[in-house]
Design a protein around this nucleic acid. Structure first.
Lengths: 145, 145
DNA sequence: TATTGACCTAAAGTCAGGTTTAGGTGTTAC
DNA sequence: GTAACACCTAAACCTGACTTTAGGTCAATA
């Protein structure tokens, strides 16, 4: 059993955020002692891991809450929950692809500015043609434009 | 030269958002005709590509604005701009790593719920030990916990 | 015993990043 | 010549996800 302060430290999540998650219904089955103090058990910690993961994958609080409500409904929602994870898998894979595209653009810009820095100005780079680019850079450029 | 409506369609960005970016100073050197209508040229389109990329990499509007102001200051800010892109490259690589970690968790959950669905309940899965997991799943699980 | 520290609630406040509204201009289509 | 369309501004509004504030409980320490 952990206090809110301990959990906050473990996960590096502000106490106010943990209380907010609780208020929003994300922390199902979180117990409180007779004087109202929250006691986190292992399954609450696992819920926090899942919340962090679903947030990273771009899910909104209200949808995470819905998922948590399915968890507490038991066996009859297993398929729903499985499908939700399959969908989040796709979401996250799409996000990674987008980021990789952005990374391509950034790599092109890094090359561009490294060259411009050598030249002391952007004159040459502003009008550079595909033929003048090294093969790897040309591939990136074509990918991005 | 493109109208705001054309640009909105090309990039799938709402007109209101393009106006907002202009108002916030992200679209430097954007010309307007005598009656105040925006005319986008190639370099404005390139700016929009850069904005989209920097947004994906997690940069805030006010920082993108600062970058755009460096662009309009010319050669003396080339090094600044290069360093900014180098830093964003790191940011985006870190983001990809995070997403890959989240994807691991999601893959574990997909496996978990596929098994639970077969069983018709979560009894077996809730208490499953490392030894009972296939090797790939065990590796994921260890990565995540 | 009193003060410190960790916890509590409810409600208000904040911030980024837009979006919507209200009222207006200028050009083309019937 | 009037209506429809694409554009304009300024300002108000909205949403999600927190964070801060104000006021209070309780247990342990000086």
């Amino acid at each position: 059993m952990y206090s809110i302060g301990e959990v906050s430290e473990m996960f590096n999540i502000p106490i106010s955020t943990l209380r907010y998650y609780d208020k929003e219904g994300l922390l199902i089955n979180l117990e409180k002692d007779k004087s109202g103090i929250r006691k986190f058990n292992e399954s609450n910690l696992e819920a926090i891991r899942v919340i962090e993961c679903l947030k990273k994958s771009g899910m909104q609080i209200k949808d995470i809450k819905e998922f948590m409500s399915w968890v507490s409904e038991g066996n009859k929602t297993i398929t729903k929950r499985k499908n939700m994870f399959l969908k989040q898998k796709e979401n996250i894979e799409a996000k990674i692809k987008e980021l990789q595209k952005a990374l391509n653009m950034i790599n092109y810009k890094c090359w561009y500015y490294t060259q411009a820095e050598k030249d002391g100005n952007e004159k040459r780079m502003k009008n550079i043609s595909l033929k003048e680019m090294p093969k790897e850079i040309r591939e990136i450029w074509e990918n991005v434009h």
